[in-house]
């Protein structure tokens, strides 16, 4: 039997990255925040990063952190909620600036400018920007632990496959660029000129590759990263989680566990309201199903709270269940 609660899995030394995935509204952000909080309390320097465009970390911490960069909400606990649109815009302005500066132009050729502007509408642009920000933080390595709150299921998978797509694309580009450099070198030797000037593009490519591989290597290393699915005791959630686990496995990511959220506490079995008693009974049936399907993979349960857990107080409460495993189901 795996230890109940995430303390064992996550807070041991060597774990650098924790990812929470799952459908929208099931408690990914809450779990991420609670885990990050618990790790920070242990003295680790933690970065909790939300990829969700819905600003849910702001909501949980009751502070406006959207697009504000790293904000320290508690000692050692830093949270980031990326404003991908703003990041894309800033990125594009930077590209334009570089072109103008490099070629000392007043105006970027209209064809180029139109191309740059139209790339904003590229469907993968948003994910790319978010992904790049994640990889950036990890590559900088300023934190002991990175907690990533993934976007809802479909986007989450796409974001992670993006890693492979981007990496192989960059690989190919590097290959072509290196080939070009080989020819530069041959031409140089034939003409017996001195050194060929450094290829800036190649350097950029190496830099991008380094950043991406640091991130993907860490993500795939099971001793350094832990991947959790968050679900609720509802039949629909069981099917979705099953599918998601399969999809994640197919891209080489093995789950470290499944976290159950919004579990009705035991005392609800005798609740005077038949409405709640029924819900409780139904949950118990689904829990049986969950146990059969996922068994040992279920590592923690967070109860349904009388009110939404918010602020540091609420997060601390969630952490008790998520990390210390106060609530037991079987």
């Amino acid at each position: 039997m795996v230890a109940w609660g995430l303390r064992e899995v996550v807070l041991r030394d060597g774990v650098k990255m924790v990812i929470f995935a799952g459908k929208g509204g099931l408690g990914k952000t809450t779990s991420s925040a609670a885990l990050a909080y618990a790790a920070a309390m242990e003295g680790k320097k933690v970065l909790c990063f939300s990829t969700d465009p819905q600003a849910s970390l702001s909501d949980i911490f009751e502070r406006d952190i959207f697009g504000k960069g790293e904000v320290e909400v508690a000692p050692n606990l830093f949270v980031v909620e990326i404003d991908a649109d703003a990041k894309i815009n800033a990125y594009i302005q930077e590209v334009k600036r570089k072109i103008k500066e490099k070629y000392m132009m007043e105006q970027i050729p209209p064809e180029i400018e139109a191309y740059i502007d139209s790339s904003v509408a590229e469907p993968a642009m948003y994910e790319s920007a978010t992904y790049d920000a994640m990889a950036d933080y990890v590559a900088k390595g300023e934190y002991d632990l990175y907690v990533f709150d993934m976007p809802p299921f479909g986007h989450g998978i796409r974001m992670l496959t993006m890693a492979d797509v981007l990496t192989s694309w960059v690989e190919k580009l590097t290959e072509v660029r290196e080939k070009a450099r080989e020819y530069d070198e041959i031409a140089r030797r034939l003409k017996s000129e001195r050194l060929v000037k450094e290829d800036e593009i190649l350097n950029e490519l190496y830099e991008i590759r380094r950043k991406l591989t640091t991130f993907t290597d860490l993500m795939r290393d099971r001793s350094k990263s832990a991947f959790f699915m968050v679900m609720t005791p509802e039949a629909m959630s069981v099917y979705d989680t099953e599918k998601a686990l399969e999809a994640f496995r197919s891209i080489g990511i093995k789950p470290a566990g499944v976290v159950l959220n919004k579990v009705l506490p035991k005392e609800m079995a005798d609740n005077p309201s038949p409405y709640i008693r029924n819900r409780y009974r139904q949950q118990q049936e689904v829990l049986k199903m969950i146990f059969e399907k996922f068994g040992d993979l279920v590592v923690a349960a967070i109860p349904m709270f009388p009110r939404e857990p918010k602020g540091l107080e609420g997060i601390r409460e969630v952490a008790k269940h998520l990390v210390d495993g106060v609530t037991r189901i079987w």
Binding site: Y183, A187, L190
Partner: peptide, 15 residues
């Protein structure tokens, strides 16, 4: 040299 530079150009275009 011309041949090499020509090939180099093709690679550049490819890139």
């Amino acid at each position: 040299v011309s041949a090499v530079l020509k090939t180099r150009m093709y690679i550049e275009h490819m890139f």
